[in-house]
Design a protein around this nucleic acid. Structure first.
Lengths: 206, 206
DNA sequence: TTGTCAAGAATGAACGTTCGTTTTAAGTTG
DNA sequence: CAACTTAAAACGAACGTTCATTCTTGACAA
């Protein structure tokens, strides 16, 4: 038997996913042809189709890993104890996300992949359901976090915790967009910017 | 002569753009075939190709209008005098953007179109250049706005105005993403959420 | 150690389909 | 009828995928 080692098979699979991720980040899922992927990973069609039944399955595998990374960054931060202030917390999330060790991608490339993925989610119900579920969990966790801020006396009693949580998430998402489009985002920009905004309000009504 | 009126020609052109925009928001630029567009607008291939040289040109026309809408909402808000606080200002921007009167689209559909457009920008240098230019102008205007906040004593002297401006823009962008993906965004969420965050900082060091 | 050999892994040309676009012919209107 | 618009068939190119074939691997006999 000429069966190669399991390590070899795993490495091949990863090689395909990483190469495909680079292609997808660069040209989108539909702007990338299988031939583009084949050239990028340096394998022939037959080889790739031995590891994945089709293009859709490659896309699915990549989206799953990417979702997990982003969601993981948010959830890990929301569990920090004691919770840092929002500026520090979100800066940490962004730093983790843009580190993007997922497919061996550069910061900006990973941000681009995230944007492509959101856009693909708009046309694929399965992806949308996957994202919906993750988002609901994440949003709940961050709402609890904001309630903790309130308990600690950092936040007044007149604003909806859910709205604050969604605004925090939106800020991080917006910076992912900016990194993908313009590429000069660092966690410090978020941290400084949000700290500035946080200083602009009235006294908190405790 | 069977030449129809100029109004008719303009209406046809708009009919094509609006229908194509619906398709593109739903399935992305590359997930939409010309046949999809033809069916949506109720015209034949020959008719559409009389008004536009090709698919690329339809995409270009739509992106231009969409960019202009978003950029317009940001710039209009930044010119308000006296400038409202960030929560009110950004809520206004989001309200204008999600009104999306551009192609007769629903709020969520317009947000989806914006996301599709960002994703397309990542693979089209011409679009990227267009967006870069608009973003640079916008960012400069909002930086001046933040400086005005500082002059008014709302913001301490130790944070970079540019960082605050980018964070504000990111927040609005993030909510556009959320509206596209999950669809339950209202300007009030942003306004309340940001007001909450603004109340969470230390006293401003004037 | 070395040589052998089948089974697994990889190849790349070719397939049917669908894409964006063009052409051609029929229809419509002042 | 002349000027122009529309419909529909047809085009080459490119798509995702398949398959007959070739190469490579590693267990095993000597």
């Amino acid at each position: 038997m000429a069966r190669v080692s399991q390590e070899h098979l795993d490495a091949r699979r990863r090689q395909i996913l990483d190469g495909a991720a680079r292609c997808f980040a660069r040209n989108g899922f539909h702007g990338t042809s299988m031939q583009d992927v084949l050239k990028e990973v340096g394998l022939s069609a037959g080889a790739v189709y031995r590891y994945f039944p089709g293009k859709e399955d490659i896309i699915a595998a990549i989206t799953e890993e990417t979702f997990a990374t982003i969601r993981g960054a948010f959830e890990e931060a929301s569990r920090m104890s004691p919770p840092p202030t929002p500026d520090v917390l979100l800066s940490r999330v962004l730093g983790r996300v843009l580190a993007g060790e997922v497919h061996g991608l550069e910061r900006r490339t990973f941000a681009a992949l995230a944007v492509q993925l959101w856009s693909e989610t708009l046309r694929d119900g399965r992806l949308a359901a996957q994202l919906d579920e993750g988002y609901a969990t994440m949003r709940a966790a961050w709402t609890r976090l904001v309630e903790a801020y309130r308990d600690a006396g950092l936040l007044g009693g007149d604003v909806a915790a859910d709205h604050v949580a969604r605004t925090m998430i939106a800020t991080a998402q917006g910076f992912i967009v900016q990194e993908a489009l313009f590429g000069d985002v660092t966690p410090e920009v978020l941290e400084n910017g949000l700290r500035g905004l946080m200083s602009m309000g009235p006294q908190k009504a405790s």
